[in-house]
Design a protein around this nucleic acid. Structure first.
Length: 568
RNA sequence: CGGGGUGUAGCUCAGUAUGGUUAGAGUACUUGGUUUGGGACCAAGGGGCCGAAGGUUCGAGUCCUUUCACCCCGACCA
């Protein structure tokens, strides 16, 4: 492509609303342009990168036997009613009616559509397993789109769905998909981590997220210092604590604690580690058609993990509750404890089970109990893991310690089980001629988000730095002075030679100055720029490496060979 | 959905407190010339319903009302 003819509107200034590096550079370098909140146009460079990523995904999917399909973007609302997700997704589903007044939904994901496609077509265990996928625009009417391509309303996703006759076979496929996804991210040149994840609203028995490590990531992940363990903070668990603080060593007693309402105050007052205090987090728990106040009890040194709390209560949502609301049902904020408490339901964190020598609220203004042995209620109370892991906690699998890092969720794979096949009555006949619902897996990968994630991880103060696998063009030939006949000829010749060699090459033949064209090349981020300039008089050209920012002089006649070597 | 902010040239922004010539700058664009190894210089140009609607006024980019859009923090989020 000739730069003089290319539609690549680069700008010196970033759009005022761009915050992330990826957003700023993709906009400045002319890859994307915003049309409305969460909606973007891909310009030629952006489209080329998308295609690069899609090709890699297609290659890896084909290697593991997944078949590509393409389902309609517009989906009948009936299907969503059938699965029950029309309510679950709520306002995120963009709904509309056609001229005949039939209700439709723009697909935010395609479980329903895919199950509908397969049901009554695959009817025998002999035709299983089956893995179908597509790369397709999705639409979710996000409450707050942000960060450019990172969280748009319309985005491109690779979504795959597998159908099995047994859970063992699903497990096998799940592992195969995890391996394929890792391969894809490695080929894209990304630094990533596979982590345990919460299954969320989509349901199912297990899920893993693929996180591209980046400071700007929206997810916090806990990773082990020694082993491979990693988990989204929402799902992270920890090993038994080994260093137990010195215990207070007191008898059970009710103790007057005037005005001592916080864990900090309490620990100070008794001069004990907050490990020995019991924290109560009161929340309002929302169910489909009712809501109630639930008390979550944890060790004072721990914090409530809300996603775990939602899972522990089977709730749709959990919201804060006011002190007044607590007082209305007879609870005394600051002095709520797990003993003799019948005003509200409770969930105790596992770390409190059989815990001795604890200090907790006495459910009476200005009084706490000390020397509480949780054994007295441990066989009747409801215990769950509801605590958020802390940095420095022990790894659940080894002696290592957990630390936090930020990640961009670019992939999420699920063992779905029969949730959707049952809801949509999608069944096959097993070896015994008995009807069984399909056992399913689902595998998502955010293609447009990968574009942003790649730039997040590969950029500097001058712009994008594309990896060889993602670069829109591998080589940029920059003719320093277009009016110089010799330079022009050499540039044209090299352009033709590289094109003939099948290299994706851009020829910067614009009538601009050296500095302008270099800045532009750096902003776009071509892996290599061949500078044809002054040194041509001595039979030399230069290769500028975008990653190292080094310029290497090469004899003009050797340049094609050099380039071919570099881009291998 | 709660809280905050911003809408003026393709882009980045002044101008709005205190209403008053023909609405500005930089950049980008066009033409001519000079320049040609790190976003050059000179000259001449084109480009605006000041987000939209209504109102106050002799007069509104500026004041009032309504509304829309976009952004940020949070809630939310396969």
């Amino acid at each position: 492509m000739r730069r003089s003819k290319a539609f690549i509107p680069t700008t010196k200034e970033a759009p005022s609303d761009a915050v992330l590096a990826s957003h700023i550079y993709l906009a400045r370098a002319g890859f994307v342009s915003q049309v409305a909140s969460g909606l973007y146009n891909y310009m030629p460079l952006g489209k080329r990168v998308i295609k690069k990523i899609e090709n890699i995904i297609n290659e890896e999917m084909s290697k593991v036997g997944a078949q590509e399909v393409e389902l309609s973007f517009v989906t009948p609302a009936d299907l969503w009613a059938e699965s029950g997700r029309i309510e679950k997704f709520g306002k995120e589903l963009l709904r509309f009616r056609d001229r005949k007044n039939n209700p439709f939904v723009l697909g935010p994901t395609h479980e329903e559509m895919m199950v509908d496609l397969v049901r009554n077509r695959i009817t025998s265990y002999k035709n299983l397993p089956l893995n179908l996928y597509q790369i397709k625009t999705k639409f979710r009417d996000e409450a707050r789109p942000r960060f450019g391509l990172m969280r748009g309303r319309e985005f491109i996703m690779k979504d795959g769905y597998s159908f099995h006759s047994s859970t063992e076979d699903l497990d096998r496929e799940f592992d195969a998909m995890e391996a394929a996804y890792k391969k894809i991210l490695s080929r894209l040149g990304l630094d990533f981590r596979v982590v345990e994840a919460d299954s969320g609203a989509i349901g199912g028995s297990g899920s893993k997220e693929l996180m591209v490590l980046a400071e700007s990531g929206e997810d916090t992940i806990a990773v082990c210092s020694q082993c491979e363990y990693g988990a989204n903070i929402e799902a992270a668990v920890r090993g038994e604590r080994t260093e137990i603080p010195e215990s207070p060593g007191v008898e059970f007693k009710k103790f007057r604690t005037p005005g001592i309402k916080t864990i900090d105050d309490l620990a100070k007052y008794f001069d004990v580690d907050s490990y020995y205090t019991i924290k109560c987090v009161a929340k309002k728990v929302i169910y489909e058609d009712e809501e109630e106040i639930v008390l979550f009890f944890l060790r004072g040194c721990d914090n409530l993990q809300e996603v775990k709390a939602i899972n522990a209560t089977d709730a749709l949502d959990i919201v804060d509750v006011s002190e007044d609301e607590l007082k209305e049902i007879g609870l005394i904020p600051g002095f709520i404890g797990p003993l003799d408490q019948d005003k509200a339901k409770h969930v105790m964190d596992n770390a409190l089970k059989y815990a001795p020598e604890m200090i907790c609220g006495a459910n009476e203004e200005d009084y706490h109990y000390i020397g509480v042995d949780m054994s007295v209620i441990s066989d009747v109370a409801y215990f769950e893991d509801i605590a958020e892991v802390n940095e420095g906690d022990r790894c659940p699998h080894c002696d290592g310690t957990l630390s936090f890092t930020k990640g961009i969720e670019v992939g999420h794979i699920f063992k779905l089980g029969t949730t959707y096949s049952e809801a949509l009555k999608a069944e096959f006949l097993d070896e015994n001629g008995k009807a069984q619902p399909f056992i399913m897996g689902t595998y998502g990968m955010g293609v447009s988000r990968l574009v942003a994630a790649t730039v997040e991880q590969h950029h500097d103060e001058f712009g994008c730095i594309w990896t060889k696998q993602t670069a829109p063009y591998m080589v940029n030939i920059m003719i320093s002075n277009i009016k110089d006949e010799a330079q022009n000829e050499a540039g044209e010749a090299l352009y033709e030679a590289l094109q003939n060699a099948g290299v994706e090459v851009m020829l910067d033949d614009r009538k601009e100055r050296f500095g302008f064209k270099m800045k532009d090349a750096e902003l776009i981020g071509f892996p290599y720029t061949v500078i044809i300039g002054k040194e041509l008089a001595n039979g030399l050209v230069q290769i500028y490496n975008r990653t190292t920012k080094e310029k290497t002089s090469v004899a003009k006649d050797d340049i094609v060979g050099e380039i071919m070597e570099l881009i291998k």
